[in-house]
Design a binder for these strands. Structure first.
Lengths: 233, 233
DNA sequence: TTATATTATGAACGATCGTTCACATTATTG
DNA sequence: CAATAATGTGAACGATCGTTCATAATATAA
């Protein structure tokens, strides 16, 4: 993935799709004890199960989504679905571990390429925004279904959450140390950024109604951060 | 309710409790076709049903909460619970209409007492923050269970959402017109404020971990808004 | 006290759920 | 082609759910 790709959402989307396919292959290979079909067959059917599970889950909630709902949506029999998962809870675990890896992979490839902390911060914001735009159904799912996770998945999710928290905090801290940023509260600032990013994928209808696309939303955040981080306090 | 009470959360909390009791009485009286016991008995038992339903719902989700769970938590038999509700969905409807009224009542009593738009804005922010602090379980419940609402409740909730949206937008607009605020994007600014308020009740553990109480969180928001709304853009 | 009204109980019913597995179908190999 | 392997099917099972209601327990009135 190239940093330049963040200039354009379309390129970023294509890169992410390639990255996701790679992760699907890894997922199938590491779950061969559960998945009872060949890798080739699994790669054909599992993504559809994932997609429909997220889609139905986002309207009814995962708990209220029955495997018969999923069976109908995927055009697969109940038995067929059970050749890819060992239990309904297992599907949740697979979904989370898959997307956590996809998301972390993305950020590992982006890194902190700039010298100017503000450039790095805005790149991180844009990357998060683009990522939640491309995988919006998943981001929405992960947030609203977080209540139903078991301890194993919660541990995964918290670890991932802490990483992205640290990501922002480190950039802000380096900006303050370099006297490029005002001496703001790092925790509050990173919280604020994440809250704004969250609003984007939690309330898509609001921004759609106002005809605000991801790029203009980014500009608003960038403007806010520039003012907040460079004004005299 | 007195505006001065917003200087102190304890007073505000007491005022809200009185206000809520009033609303409970109204709720019982307007639902006499459903509630099969005397008002006195209902006022003794219904609040407990509400509290426990929210409490269990916040850990398992309302859908996964069985009436047997609720029965155990409230120390009431299944039959007893059914003398207060006509169906499980009905409980959701009662909860929403109750709290929507409590919340709207609060803001009707606060109004826009100041001449300075910034004072009004910060008062509105503080009121929201205090309100979500006192009724945090409900705010959390309402947000995370919004997916499961039927059309009737969605209409109620959207109307209430629009009102609070307008509340902030109007204050910001009057500030811009009076040239007290910079010419910011009203929609983005009110969205940002709501996102920050939401973070407070959606992720209480985060702020608890950092030993940040509601007043210091308010100060951070106030600081941000002051800088953003008065800086030269 | 007795009689009546109010409130509380929880076994039982039908529906739906997650899950299994004997079997059918299709694809691959020899 | 036949034989074998791989994949797909959906009726059936036990558990749990929301809901009802005949009955019991308690409070109130006479």
């Amino acid at each position: 993935m190239n940093i330049q790709s963040l200039e354009d959402l379309t390129d970023f989307k294509r890169d992410l799709e390639v990255l996701e396919e790679k992760q699907f292959l890894l997922l199938v290979e590491t779950n061969q004890d559960i998945i009872k079909v060949s890798t080739k067959t699994a790669l054909k059917n599992l993504p559809k199960i994932f997609d429909e599970a997220i889609k139905i889950g986002n309207t009814k909630g995962f708990n209220a989504t029955s495997l018969r709902d999923l069976s109908q949506a995927t055009d697969m029999s109940l038995g067929k679905i059970y050749t890819y998962i060992s239990a309904k809870d297992d599907l949740l675990l697979m979904l989370h571990s898959h997307y956590i890896k996809v998301i972390e992979d993305t950020f590992n490839q982006i890194g902190l390429p700039h010298k100017n902390p503000m450039d790095n911060l805005l790149l991180a914001v844009k990357a998060h925004l683009y990522l939640s735009q491309v995988f919006r159904p998943w981001f929405y799912f992960a947030f609203t279904e977080s209540k139903h996770l078991n301890k194993k998945i919660i541990a995964l999710a918290k670890e991932s959450e802490l990483k992205s928290d640290l990501y922002f905090r480190n950039i802000i801290q380096s900006g303050i140390q370099a006297k490029r940023f005002a001496a703001v509260d790092m925790n509050f600032t990173s919280s604020m950024i994440k809250a704004l990013l969250q609003d984007w994928y939690l309330k898509p209808w609001k921004y759609a109604e106002r005809n605000i696309d991801v790029d203009s939303y980014f500009k608003e955040i960038a403007n806010l951060l520039t003012i907040y981080l460079t004004a005299k306090h």
